[in-house]
Design a protein around this nucleic acid. Structure first.
Lengths: 277, 277
DNA sequence: TGAATAGTGTCTGTGAGACAATATTAT
DNA sequence: ATAATATTGTCTCACAGACACTATTCA
C-alpha cells in the first residue's frame, strides 16, 4: 500500500532513490576525422582516409582491447558534458563538434552490470590536433566493404590491423533504421563496433544536407581537398562539376592560392558561415 | 590505490556497482497519430489533425499534469521493451511503430533525482485503436505556429486546451540540430514539451525519405486521405499531381473504391511493401 | 614535354512546381 | 445543376549525371 501525500514537497522529502534498482550510464564518443597520407609521387595529392579514434583500455573489463573514448557520467554533468570531459582526459582533444548519436542499451553489453551508453558522434580536423594526442589514443583508418546485409570493416593505425563484421537488418519495412549485430569481433570492447557503424551511417547521411563536414577540415582548403573528404566519407568518387555546383553556395573564394604540386595551383576557399542574402 | 587484478573473472567477482552513484532512467514515448474530425458538409472530406497521446499523472511529482506515457526501465529489459510495456500498461496500445528519438538528460529535469529519459517516437493509426484506450490517456490535436526562433503549440483533446512555447536555437552553424528551451508551459510535466517538438521535427523530416507514414493509416486508403496526412504533418498544402508522382512508387492500386461522398469516388490503395522489380 | 590536378562549358534526362482540364458523384 | 473531390496532362525550370575541354604547374 502506497502512502498518500498532500503536496509535492512532502512527497519529495520522502523520496528515496536508493530503494530502486538503476542502471549505470556511460557517455561514449565515436570521433571521426579524415587523415592525409604522404605521397611518393610529387604530382599526386596525398591520399585521404576516413578515420576513427580508439583508446586502448587499461583496466578490466576488456583490458588491452580498443574501444571508443568514454566513461561514466557524473551526477552533476549532462552526457554531453561528460563526453567533453572524457575526450579531454583520455585524448587531450578540446572543442570538438559533438552530436548525440544513439543510446545503446542491450542488457548484457557490459559484463560488470547493466550499463547504458549514450553515444555521441564527434568530428574534428585531425591535422590540427594530431601531435597533442595522448599515447593511449590512436587514429585508425577505416576501410569498409558493405553489402546489403553486412559491413566488413578493417581498421589500421599503422602498427595494428583490426577487423570486425557487423550485420544489418531493417527494423521495419517502413523505416531506414537497422538492427545491427556484431558477427565477428576480437579486438574491440563492448558493442562499440555497432556504434562505429551507426556513426558512419549518420555521417554519410548528414553530410549531404548539413554543413558538418566543415568541422573536419581546416579554415582554408582547396575544393579538391574538400571533394576528397566527401569521397572518403561517402565511399565513392564524385564528378568534379557536380561537386562544385553543390558546394558552391557553402564556400567563399579567398585570394590565397595553394601552389607547390606539379600541377595547376588551386584557389583556397573558406566556409561561408553566413546564409546568402 | 586500486587493487591489481590478473583476470577479468577475478575483477568482475569483486565489482560492486553500489559503490557508484548512478542516475535513474526512464523510457518515454512521444506517440503521434492523425485523427479525423467529422464534417457537417456531406461533400467535404473529414478534416484531419495531427495528434499526440498524453497521460494524466496520478502521482507526484507533477501530479494531475499531462505527460508523455513513460516509466522507469527495469534491469532486465531494454528501453524499447520498457516503452512497449509502458504503452500497454498506461494506454492499452500494442504493436506500435517505435523509433528511438533522443535521450534527454538535463540535470534538473526531474525534481526527485537525476533522471535520464530515453525517448521514443511512436506512430499509430488512431482509428483502429481509439475505443480501447484507457481513460487516463487522451489524444490531443496539435496546432503549431512556428517561426525562426520558437514554436507556439496548442493542444486540444475536446475538453481541455493546453498551450506551451518552446524556443529553438541552432546548436552549431554547421548542423541542423537545435537546442530547445521551454519558454512557457503550465500544463505539461517534466521537459516533455521539448520531446514533443523533437518528435514533430523528426517526423516532418523522415516522412519525406522513408515510408513511416504508412504506420499512421489503415490498410486501405485513398490518395486524398494519404495526402491529408502528409499535409497535417508537414503543416502545408501539397499540389495534387506532385504528391501523386512522389507517392506512386510506394502504393498499389486495389480494385476497391470508396464511394459515398458527394463527389467522384476514389480508388483505394494499399502500401506496396515489396520493392519494385 | 608530360603527368597530374584545377576549373569550366554544355548536353541530356529526371523530377518538382504550377496550373489547367476532365471525370464522377450525392444532393 | 452544383459543389466538392478524383485524376490526368503538360509546360517550365532547376538541377544532377556525364563527358569534353581548357588551364597551369614542376620535375
Amino acid at each position: 500500500m502506497e502512502k498518500e501525500y498532500n503536496s509535492e514537497e512532502e512527497f519529495l522529502k520522502d523520496y528515496d532513490v536508493s530503494k530502486y534498482d538503476r542502471p549505470s550510464v556511460t557517455s561514449d564518443i565515436c570521433l571521426f576525422s579524415v587523415s592525409s597520407e604522404g605521397q611518393n609521387n610529387y604530382r599526386k595529392l596525398s591520399k585521404k582516409y576516413f578515420s576513427v579514434l580508439l583508446v586502448k583500455r587499461k583496466n578490466y573489463p576488456f583490458k588491452d582491447k580498443w574501444c571508443l573514448p568514454g566513461g561514466f557520467i557524473r551526477m552533476n554533468e549532462t552526457s554531453e558534458e561528460a563526453a567533453r570531459r572524457v575526450l579531454a582526459d583520455e585524448t587531450n582533444l578540446h572543442n570538438v563538434f559533438l552530436e548525440q548519436l544513439y543510446t545503446f542499451d542491450s542488457i548484457d553489453r557490459d559484463p560488470r552490470c547493466r550499463v547504458l551508453s549514450i553515444t555521441y558522434m564527434g568530428l574534428v580536423d585531425k591535422n590540427k590536433l594530431d601531435d597533442s594526442l595522448f599515447p593511449n589514443a590512436s587514429w585508425f583508418n577505416i576501410t569498409s566493404l558493405e553489402d546489403d546485409n553486412s559491413y566488413h570493416v578493417t581498421l589500421d593505425n599503422g602498427n595494428e590491423t583490426i577487423k570486425f563484421v557487423v550485420g544489418k537488418t531493417l527494423k521495419e519495412k517502413t523505416t531506414d533504421r537497422f538492427k545491427f549485430e556484431v558477427l565477428d569481433n576480437k579486438s574491440i570492447a563492448f558493442d562499440h563496433p555497432k556504434a562505429i557503424i551507426s556513426g558512419m551511417e549518420r555521417l554519410k547521411h548528414k553530410i549531404s544536407y548539413t554543413d558538418i563536414v566543415f568541422n573536419m577540415i581546416g579554415e582554408y582548403f582547396t575544393l579538391g581537398e574538400l571533394q576528397q573528404v566527401y569521397e572518403v566519407i561517402l565511399g565513392k568518387k564524385l564528378l568534379d562539376p557536380a561537386f562544385r555546383r553543390i558546394i558552391a553556395g557553402k564556400v567563399v573564394k579567398t585570394d590565397k592560392m595553394q601552389t607547390g604540386g606539379g600541377h595547376r595551383p588551386s584557389v583556397l576557399f573558406k566556409y561561408k558561415d553566413e546564409k546568402e542574402l
